[in-house]
Design a protein around this nucleic acid. Structure first.
Length: 816
RNA sequence: GGGCGAGUGGCGGAACCGGUAUACGCGGCGGACUUAAAAUCCGCUGGCCAUAACAGGCCUUGUGGGUUCGAGUCCCACCUCGCCCACCA
């Protein structure tokens, strides 16, 4: 009898699947499609990680399940290969990123192939391939043409270590996402942006329809940060200036007793009285010397200084002092606020510290804090007695009529800053001409290929290493033919990843980025599996898809790229810490495979370890359990084969315990896979196998056995594809188990032939009764009352109520 | 401060609609096989009380209350932990 040895069967089937091309996907209008893909990886030098394996096992199990059920499945992989690690490695070692990236991809690919993922490898793409980034550049040109890519001089986040600007999405608590110990700085630079804010409302409205985890949806809503309110003009006393503020609470205008401008606000110098000049100048200097990390500290005590000028509250007509303070941010709204200390906690802290008047203008609803809530208006002239929300609309209308206010919606989200002063990215296809300005590279000249250079270090002044590639930079202007220079910034890697899932649908097209017919067939992605990029990548992709829909390159109904987002949890080391080389706690998945557990046991374990969405710590002993299970599956089949070969296949049967166990397992595994409950699906497989062994031990492995073993192979296939395929072949079935259909269950067999009911007495389980399956409510009640133990406990009393729950229990209620 | 989520055996977790809490696995204990070990197989494994044994009783899903014949599940309050956002006016 053959022993279960994964090393004997796994590489063999991997080769055969590859040769037979059974996972190649083709558009087929007659078959329903399922598009399943994982967020494509960055091919790092440290190789595949158990976290990757979890993510790809989930993806592949979903893909295989749908393929077996007859869906036309597209699942594939690509490489998100531009980015800093490869460039930093080049700076350190001199190895060109082109080379190290190719090497890393080759190694990732070998490792993934060893895990037996059912990718259509003919669709593999790499973002650093000029054949790919040609189209990323083409999309840039289309955005430019439609006014959605533009250049702007602005104050931007800058990482002093990376020597590049960062997108807002790449700054975490004022620090670079790659260098958590280095505070990011701010620099004034001319940068390229994508106008994502144009789609702010659409992106926000679309969130409601997504089948995504609530948490991710909330994060996107938060990020967009829409707030409705009003802009109100305050005139400055004895001056022609007005100060504009943004507020979400115009109903508290009567309570505005001061104003605050951000230290960077352009009106500050003009509004500073001569007597206050020195104070104000030194305050601004102090504020600017603080890092942004410090300025964002919420627990800090409020600071500020008066400008010495006064504004007129347009509601009360009173003169109120104008201050500058760094708790007001230049980035948001107008960079100036009206201070309402009675109803805003921050303004209250400020007024309390500096002795400014505090005027209450509404009584909060009972039990509510006075800050930020609703209530009944007072001390507000003609508006007294109104509800705050009512006054909010009224006063904006009234002030608008006077021309001193207007409705205004603000967003927290900024335009997407995409230029990077780094070498290893897709060049921005723009030529700067002294005469014609920024001129797009003609589409026919794409791609703008990255030149090979020898020194990758950015010069730190805001120009990438590309600036030194003189022969590449100097070109003629496509518009006037005069001397001009190429843009030396490259695009943020997120640009490359915002459309790759479309390229998967048509990866070799050299005429178009994708054929809309193909994209419309496959899109949207039905299951998108990943554990990162909750805002960034997923928001950028939603933005680009809307633009593509506007251009007619994808159907409007498919503009949401991701139908169902499968956001998996993180795997920590055994000690609960993040795995890292320096801590020496990294688990190498391929090592486990080579140790003899095999890819099947590893994949199965990563699905079994916990629900997919939960973070888990790696249990080093766990994989032995799934290996043991596969071994039991193997032995069960081998024992069956040794008997079968002697006696020949036996006939089928009907309502026997083996068929019951099979039906039960098929239903449970199917249900669990439909709701992505992989851990319980694996548990159901284990129960099925345990039950088959029990039935065999009691001599029940007769008529229905062949079907039971056959379906075992088909049920195991999405989780442990190699052993399933091997057993399928050994059992003598034709073709691949992975396209052999999904087993069906017989609903009639699910009910057991005896009924076991619990009997509760005042809510406590006191006895168990066994009845024929045909027993009805009356039989159950009689049996419960006649049960010896229940009789004893009742002691002659009659239950006041009897509740019968079919198939579950009889509940007796006795009153004392 | 705001938002989201989670607290169940020694551990990962199950219980999908309110219906016999602790499925499945890891670990542990005992046994079979073996010169021995590994592997494999079989049995036991929430706590306390009780018993020669069988039986039996009580407690238990973070804490306290509530609704219900019945609550891990629903409601209220609280505690703890995790993640995300955060002087956003």
């Amino acid at each position: 009898m053959r022993r279960y040895n994964p090393a004997d069967i796994e590489p063999k089937w991997q080769r055969q699947w590859d040769d037979a091309k059974i996972y190649q996907a083709t558009e087929d209008a007659d078959r329903p499609k399922t598009y399943v893909t994982a967020m494509f990886p960055y091919p790092s030098g440290s190789g595949l990680h158990v976290g990757h394996v979890r993510n790809y096992s989930i993806t592949d199990t979903i893909a295989r399940f749908h393929r077996q059920r007859g869906q036309n499945v597209l699942t594939t992989i690509g490489w998100d290969a531009f980015g800093l690690p490869a460039e930093n490695y080049a700076i350190k070692t001199g190895v060109p990123p082109q080379q190290s990236t190719a090497r890393n991809i080759a190694s990732f690919k070998t490792q993934l192939q060893r895990l037996g993922m059912s990718y259509d490898w003919s669709r593999e793409i790499t973002t650093t391939d000029p054949k790919y980034y040609r189209w990323t550049q083409w999309i840039f040109l289309q955005l430019f043409k439609h006014g959605l890519a533009y250049q702007k001089e602005s104050l931007q986040w800058w990482c002093p270590v990376c020597k590049t600007v960062l997108a807002n999405e790449q700054v975490i608590n004022g620090r670079c996402w790659r260098h958590e110990d280095t505070p990011a700085e701010k620099k004034w630079l001319k940068q390229w942006f994508f106008r994502i804010t144009k789609y702010a409302d659409q992106l926000l409205d679309g969130i409601g329809d997504l089948e995504w985890p609530a948490k991710i949806k909330a994060m996107q809503r938060n990020w967009i940060g829409k707030s409705k309110g009003a802009e109100i003009d305050f005139t400055v006393a004895d001056s022609s200036e007005t100060i504009q503020v943004f507020t979400t609470r115009p109903d508290t205008l009567y309570g505005a007793t001061f104003m605050v401008l951000a230290p960077e606000h352009p009106q500050v110098p003009r509004l500073t009285a001569a007597a206050n000049k020195a104070e104000v100048a030194s305050y601004i200097k102090a504020a600017q010397s603080k890092s942004d990390v410090e300025r964002m500290e919420t627990e800090r005590e409020k600071t500020g200084t008066p400008l010495g000028s006064y504004a007129i509250n347009p509601a009360t007509g009173q003169k109120i002092p104008v201050w500058t303070a760094d708790y007001v941010l230049m980035d948001y709204g107008t960079g100036a606020i009206m201070g309402v200390p009675a109803h805003d906690e921050r303004d209250n802290q400020f007024a309390t510290k500096f002795g400014l008047p505090i005027a209450r203008v509404y009584d909060p609803v009972k039990g509510d804090s006075p800050y930020g809530g609703e209530g009944k208006v007072k001390n507000s002239g003609e508006y007294n007695g109104m509800a705050t929300h009512q006054m909010r609309e009224r006063i904006v209308a009234d002030l608008s009529a006077r021309g001193v206010a207007r409705e205004k919606t603000n967003y927290r989200m900024r335009d997407w800053l995409i230029s990077r002063q780094r070498y290893w990215g897709a060049p921005i296809p723009i030529i700067h001409c002294p005469k014609d300005g920024a001129v797009p590279v003609p589409e026919a000249d794409l791609p703008v290929t990255l030149p090979e250079i020898s020194d990758y270090l950015p010069d730190g002044s805001g120009t990438s290493a590309l600036g030194r590639a003189k022969g590449w930079v100097s070109v003629t202007c496509p518009s006037c033919g005069g001397p001009a220079k190429r843009e030396t910034d490259t695009m943020d890697g997120y640009a490359c990843s915002s459309w790759y899932y479309l390229r998967y649908t048509d990866p070799h097209n050299n005429r178009l980025a994708w054929d809309p017919a193909k994209a419309n067939y496959w899109m949207p992605i039905d299951y998108y599996c990943g554990g990162d990029h909750a805002v960034s990548h997923l928001l950028y992709s939603r933005f680009w898809m809307r633009f593509f829909a506007d251009q007619g390159w994808i159907e409007r109904t498919r503009q949401e790229p991701v139908h169902r987002l499968v956001f998996n949890g993180y795997i920590y080391a055994h000690d609960g810490q993040k795995m890292s080389k320096s801590k020496g706690n990294v688990v190498d998945p391929l090592e486990l495979v080579e140790q003899g557990y095999g890819a099947d046991a590893l994949r199965l374990y990563e699905l079994f370890i916990a629900p997919y969405e939960l973070d888990v710590a790696w249990d080093p002993g766990g994989i032995a359990g799934t290996y043991r299970f596969l071994n039991r599956v193997w032995m069960l089949a081998q024992e069956y084969l040794s008997v079968k070969n002697k006696n020949g296949p036996a006939a089928k049967s009907g309502a026997d315990p083996v068929s019951r166990a099979r039906s039960k397992a098929v239903k449970k595994v199917t249900d669990d896979l439909e709701r992505l409950s992989f851990n319980t699906a694996v548990a159901a497989l284990m129960e099925y196998v345990n039950e088959l062994y029990r039935l065999k031990a009691s001599g029940m492995d007769g008529q229905a056995w062949p079907e039971a073993v056959k379906d075992l192979a088909r049920l195991v296939a999405p989780f442990a594809p190699h052993i399933a395929e091997e057993l399928w072949q050994q059992l003598g079935y034709e073709g691949s188990v992975h396209v052999a259909g999904w087993p069906a269950w017989d609903e009639n067999l699910l009910a057991a032939n005896t009924l076991v009911l619990a009997v509760q007495l005042n809510g406590r389980v006191r006895a168990e009764i066994t009845l024929p399956a045909t027993a009805g409510e009356a039989d159950a009640k009689t049996a419960a009352l006649n049960n010896a133990k229940i009789k004893r406990l009742l002691g002659g009393k009659q239950p006041a109520r009897i509740i019968y729950v079919p198939g579950r229990l009889v509940s007796l209620v006795v009153k004392d």
